[in-house]
């Protein structure tokens, strides 16, 4: 069920797109945007409202393509199935000449987020990653910084092999599911995006209340929206403008409020450099 869902939505959206193409009023190719678990990509009502906002600003149809996997979404970009995607902050994305940085979300007023190491609420002793030796650890996605690279980097920096440090690791392919894995006790700990944890926490403590933040990483640039380099400049500018001016529009403000974001800013590539260094460090033997 879970695994098929994104595929089903893709089909529905494709169907919708085909229908819209046949309609003279929308005789324009929709702008297709890929969403990953960087964002809470299962909040369909919110996504629908965001689409309405973007369509009204761009004057053309917009279609969101939801995928649980970063890799798959990136592949869609390369195949030009989608023109824009909200991915991770890893250098494959931020430092890739084929991608252009479109906009960086502002979380808590700033274009940054962190990685949280979370443990079950009843685990009062764990102070950081080093207390988790031989525990079961949940990652979100192998391309996620907060959900995969960051904890492994922290271990390796201390000379610890992240592949043998934990008794068992597994991927949940979503920050929300990683939080759930810790909440229900499948994992003893997980590394998740602070944005996802805080946003879920604001929605209600049903899930996050059963977890405790054991450690916070340093700040990283918030995963940006990127466009494939083939997207025409006019369209790139129109979309960037639509995102940057969301705070000026009532519907835009409402969508941002529900996203738990304060707006979108013009991206500054330098905020993503530390991640690049991190990846290079990890690639060293």
């Amino acid at each position: 069920m879970q695994a098929n869902r994104p595929g089903q939505y893709l089909l529905v959206l494709l169907g919708l797109a085909l229908f819209l193409c046949g309609n003279p009023a929308w005789a324009v190719q929709p702008l297709r945007i890929g969403l990953t678990p960087t964002f809470l990509n299962e909040r369909h009502a919110l996504i629908a409202d965001w689409r309405v906002y973007l369509e009204s600003k761009l004057g053309r149809p917009v279609a969101f393509v939801l995928k649980d996997s970063y890799e798959e979404t990136m592949e869609l970009l390369h195949q030009r199935q989608i023109q824009v995607a909200w991915l991770c902050d890893c250098p494959h994305v931020t430092a890739n000449p084929e991608f252009r940085l479109l906009a960086t979300p502002l979380f808590q007023g700033r274009p940054y987020y962190r990685s949280y190491v979370i443990v079950p609420e009843h685990d009062k002793g764990t102070r950081g990653l080093l207390d988790l030796k031989d525990k079961v650890f949940a990652y979100s996605d192998p391309y996620s910084n907060a959900g995969f690279m960051n904890p492994r980097y922290a271990l390796k920096k201390r000379g610890i092999d992240p592949d043998t440090f934990f008794r068992r690791t597994f991927f949940t392919h979503s920050h929300r599911k990683a939080i759930e894995a810790v909440a229900v006790g499948v994992a003893d700990a997980a590394s998740v995006s602070s944005y996802i944890w805080e946003t879920l926490d604001r929605q209600g403590p049903a899930l996050t209340g059963r977890t405790r933040i054991a450690a916070r990483s340093e700040e990283y640039g918030f995963p940006p929206l990127v466009a494939y380099h083939t997207l025409p400049a006019r369209e790139f500018d129109a979309l960037q403008q639509a995102l940057l001016t969301m705070t000026a529009d009532p519907l835009g403000r409402e969508v941002l409020e529900r996203m738990n974001l304060d707006g979108f800013a013009r991206p500054r590539p330098e905020i993503y450099r530390p991640v690049g260094e991190m990846v290079r460090f990890m690639e060293r033997k």
């Binding site: 069920m1 597994f170 991927f171 949940t172 599911k177 229900v184 499948v186």
Partner: peptide, 13 residues
Amino acid sequence: QDDVWRAYEIINF
């Protein structure tokens, strides 16, 4: 596929 979480979702439902 060594997918612990999917297995958990399968049996938890």
